[in-house]
């Protein structure tokens, strides 16, 4: 699912965009804004993959807003002004739509976003070279390098994974499934012990009454992952 924010200062134009997107089952509107300041505020708490954005708006224009973003989600400008198209392409936006937008043209723009998203996800799923001791993940629009030794454990949420790092004051949130992360971690050190947890064996202290104690936390074990746990403790070899 592509998460998307829509921005337009005119309420009817915003409603129309939303209605268009209702016909696109792979895009979900997670936020709406009437100006750039509100949009940036929404993005801070709810990052998205795609933004549909008007250009001529009171206060900060769509062009100014996009050029101020250091790491950008995919951008599609939707505007009544044709003459900003060149500037739009300078900003490497995904597409540029002129109001009123014919539906087939709108759908073509959405399909473009879908293809880009697919390519990005495919790149993320590539298994990490086992010799590497690091991993890159997207978080808050930044590509962050993580040293595998620092990973204490990872916790899977619905669409996100929380990576708990030693020495960090808060976990790193990244948008991927726990399964994707598991595939990127070397199997001799990282073990899936529960449908929501992967742990780094280096930080394990003990296992007691169905719970596993790592450096900072006590995590549940699941019978569904019994083979994995046995492989970690060496019980299978005994």
């Amino acid at each position: 699912m592509i998460r998307c924010l829509i921005i337009d200062d005119e309420p009817l134009a915003l409603d129309l965009l939303e209605d268009n997107l209702r016909q696109v089952d792979y895009i979900q509107v997670t936020g709406k804004a009437r100006n750039a300041a509100d949009a940036l505020r929404i993005l801070r708490d709810n990052p998205v993959d795609l933004i549909f954005c008007d250009i001529q708006m009171p206060g900060i224009s769509g062009l100014q807003m996009v050029s101020s973003m250091t790491v950008r989600p995919m951008i599609i400008f939707v505007t009544a002004y044709e003459h900003f198209a060149l500037q739009g392409f300078d900003l490497e936006v995904l597409d540029y739509l002129i109001k009123p937008v014919p539906m087939d043209r709108f759908l073509r723009a959405c399909q473009k976003a879908y293809r880009v998203m697919e390519t990005r996800q495919a790149a993320q799923i590539l298994p990490a070279a086992q010799s590497r001791n690091y991993l890159f993940v997207y978080s808050d629009y930044n590509l962050i390098k993580i040293n595998l030794d620092k990973i204490e454990f990872a916790e899977g949420l619905k669409d996100y994974v929380k990576i708990h790092l030693t020495g960090a004051d808060k976990p790193l949130l990244t948008r991927m499934s726990i399964k994707t992360l598991e595939a990127q971690l070397p199997a001799e050190r990282f073990y899936r012990v529960h449908k929501s947890y992967i742990i780094n064996v280096d930080y394990v202290q003990h296992i007691r009454r169905g719970k596993i104690k790592t450096l900072t936390s006590e995590l549940p074990l699941s019978d569904a992952y019994r083979d994995m746990i046995d492989r970690m403790t060496g019980k299978a070899l005994a």
Binding site: L12, A13, L16, A80, I98, P100
Partner: peptide, 18 residues
Amino acid sequence: SPHFMFNVINSVVALSRL
């Protein structure tokens, strides 16, 4: 401004549906 006209027409498209 022509852009006023196109924005009004865009509103009419929205109304025709909504």
